[in-house]
């Protein structure tokens, strides 16, 4: 209690500790369902509960059989391949489009800035199910339903707002006189863009791209509407797995996904620090 101010009354102290413990409880409530998955995915038995052996920490009660199951099941392998393929293509597409949009929107001479920004960001706000339904009817006309191209475009549309937001944020710290300096030295606007603007906003571009990738990676509503059996992704496969073959394979996949998310988060954090350092050196 020595760190509490001396003037604290009983009620202050009570408030302090209840706030502290409520915060811990909320954190546990959020984290437990995720954390519990990890040990369960090593269950030797096909159950979703801890067996007596697991609780006794008996090595025989643990196994990696569900991980092996993932990699020997053609459906899972296809969905993993699809998730990465669609995620990567959609992220690339939204990174390119989103960066261009952000650069255009940051120009002082751009008309209707607010309106266009609102339109481009709308996929983040409009309920997914409405987007999915709309896309379904629209894509049918172009034979895009049940095709890779359809899913990539749909997911790219969902990813663009993230790229716009992150790139706009880095651009707001971009000193326009750097651009003018490049021009005054004889470089064309396109050359200055590649040599000066892109390297300086790169952290924002990459983190936007990662957000776009994650968005595609765990998206299931659009996939349910637009994907055929050939385009099943990991979330789609988990969704059907939950209903058809109840066994801890899903938990093993979930554990792998958690690992991937952590890796992405770490990457984002490293990028953020890097961009801060870059800005620190600007003046």
């Amino acid at each position: 209690m020595k760190h509490l101010p001396a003037y604290f009354t009983f009620w202050h102290i009570l408030g302090h500790y209840s706030l502290k413990w409520t915060a811990y409880l909320v954190l546990a409530f959020l984290m437990l369902p995720i954390v519990i998955i990890v040990p369960l995915s090593f269950n030797a038995e096909p159950y979703f509960t801890f067996t007596d052996g697991m609780l006794a920490l008996d090595p025989a009660a643990y196994s990696t059989r569900w991980y092996q199951a993932i990699f020997s099941d053609a459906n899972w392998l296809l969905s993993i391949k699809n998730s990465f393929l669609i995620g990567a293509l959609a992220a690339t597409l939204s990174t390119v489009l989103g960066t261009i949009a952000a650069v255009g929107l940051s120009s002082p001479v751009m008309p209707f800035k607010r309106l266009i920004t609102a339109l481009l960001l709308s996929p983040m706000i409009v309920p997914l199910i409405i987007i999915a339904a709309g896309m379904f009817f629209f894509y049918t006309r172009f034979n895009l339903v049940g095709s890779y191209a359809g899913l990539v475009i749909a997911h790219a549309a969902l990813g663009v707002p993230f790229v716009i937001i992150t790139v706009t944020a880095t651009l707001s710290g971009f000193d326009r006189s750097l651009y003018n300096a490049g021009i005054s030295m004889g470089a064309s606007p396109v050359k200055v863009f590649w040599d000066v603007v892109i390297p300086l906003i790169r952290p924002g571009v990459i983190s936007g791209g990662l957000f776009a990738f994650v968005t595609s990676f765990d998206e299931v509503v659009l996939v349910l509407f637009l994907a055929g059996p050939e385009q099943r992704t990991i979330p789609r496969q988990m969704f059907s797995g939950l209903r058809e073959q109840i066994n801890p394979t899903i938990l093993a996949v979930a554990t792998l996904l958690i690992l991937i998310s952590i890796a992405l988060l770490v990457t984002l954090e490293i990028l953020r620090r890097r961009s801060e350092r870059m800005r620190g050196t600007e003046f």
Binding site: D175, S177, N180, A181, S184, P199, L200, M278, F283
Partner: peptide, 19 residues
């Protein structure tokens, strides 16, 4: 065009490329 004028410019905030 400004990039064809061949005029050198020194800016108040230096405008050196930080990268």
């Amino acid at each position: 065009a400004p990039y064809r004028r061949n005029i050198g410019m020194v800016f108040q905030n230096y405008a050196l490329f930080p990268h």
